[in-house]
Amino acid sequence: MTIRCEIVSQDRMVFEGDVDIVVLPGSAGEMGILPHHAPLLTTLKYGFIKVRQQGKEEIFAVAGGVAEVQPQIVTVLADAAENIEEIDEARAEQARERAQEMLAKGVPADSDAYLAIEAALRRSNLRLDAVKRYRKGGRPNTPGEN
């Protein structure tokens, strides 16, 4: 028994496949979606989507968005999403430093620039967090964490 899972961001299809379970970072808490789940719409926080396919787990970092659940399919409309294996740690580190520097210099709050920098900072933090938590060689993925 599987459920279809599709993760799309504005500029590409990130993941598509039949999976056993999808774990979503819902705004009201993490939720595991199994096949035949009741129809559900939820907003997503910055966090990690985990999909398990025959015991193999793939993890995606997602920077917010919306997920629609139907009994046969989970659709994630992500603001930005990537497989954590694709993350470039050095680049994320640089991006974080750049964003922090710019914020330290002082940008008027609630301006467009401020929002953009803050979003960039949150994204790079998320990426670095992903690498630390899940990348092979990092801290092992402890069971019962979900």
Partner: peptide
């Protein structure tokens, strides 16, 4: 369409989706 469970609420979800769709 079947009835949905909304989390947090219908309004919040549309608040998220529509501006993004417009942007897209």
């Amino acid at each position: 369409a079947a009835a949905y469970i909304y989390e947090p609420g219908e309004r919040e979800i549309l608040d998220e989706i529509i501006p993004r769709f417009t942007g897209l």
